[in-house]
């Protein structure tokens, strides 16, 4: 059962279908959303664009849910999909090794060259010991995603999922369509 939804693009933000006003566009809009709606998690500034996007979308979902407690829990999973995996971070890391005369591979850049890091960032923020998973399909397909998340309730402990789509090809091109889903009882 879908409880809350968030859509973020470089131009628009919708929470449960209602537009969230902001002034900036593109990557600056993510920073503005952080300052206006979160503000207490400076690790945000170290994240790659994919993690920033997924992190903000999860925060807006959880603010919509209300009663945030940050108590450790195992019954909530984070399962996300996208098209470009970690391409923005991959490109940034490749730039640190491309030139043999200027070869300085960056560990801080390398760690984000895995798309599932965003699921870890959300789990760390909220102390979720539950399932975290990341999958790639080449086109957004709601039927595939919903079916996969319904399957994830076969886990004996999972009762709710932060799930959906979080994609970014570079710092200015991104799209999140994430939701909070609860197990049908």
């Amino acid at each position: 059962m879908m409880k809350h939804s968030v859509i973020i693009t470089p131009e628009h933000v919708l929470v449960d279908g209602n537009p969230l006003m902001h002034n900036e566009k593109g990557s600056a809009s993510l920073t503005e959303l952080y300052r206006n709606h979160i503000g207490d998690y400076p690790k945000f500034f170290k994240m790659d664009t994919l993690s920033k996007l997924g992190f903000i979308a999860s925060e807006l979902l959880l603010n919509a849910e209300g009663n945030r407690s940050f108590e450790p829990r195992e019954d909530r999973a984070v399962i996300l999909f996208n098209r470009h995996a970690s391409l923005q971070a991959d490109t940034a890391y490749q730039a640190t090794i491309q030139d043999p005369d200027n070869f300085f591979p960056s560990p801080a850049a390398f760690v984000y060259t895995l798309p599932n890091i965003v699921t870890g960032e959300i789990a760390i923020r909220n102390k979720y010991f539950g399932e975290t998973s990341f999958m790639v399909i080449d086109d957004f397909d709601e039927k595939i995603i919903i079916k996969n998340l319904e399957n994830a309730f076969q886990d004996p402990i999972t009762k709710s999922i932060i799930g959906g789509w979080v994609d970014c090809s570079d710092e200015e091109h991104f799209e999140a369509k994430m939701f909070l889903m609860e197990k049908e009882i």
Binding site: R83, H84, A85, L87, D90, L114, P115, N116, I117, T119, T132, S133, F134, M135, V136, I137, D138, D139, D141, I144, N148
Partner: peptide
């Protein structure tokens, strides 16, 4: 072909499988 979904489609196309392949990329 750098996109995992395009790489996986090359594989399913090779075998003539009609379904969209799922790529698990969980480190």
């Amino acid at each position: 072909r750098i996109r995992l979904g395009v790489m996986a489609r090359e594989v399913t196309k090779h075998f003539g499988n009609p379904n969209e392949p799922i790529i698990v990329s969980n480190a």
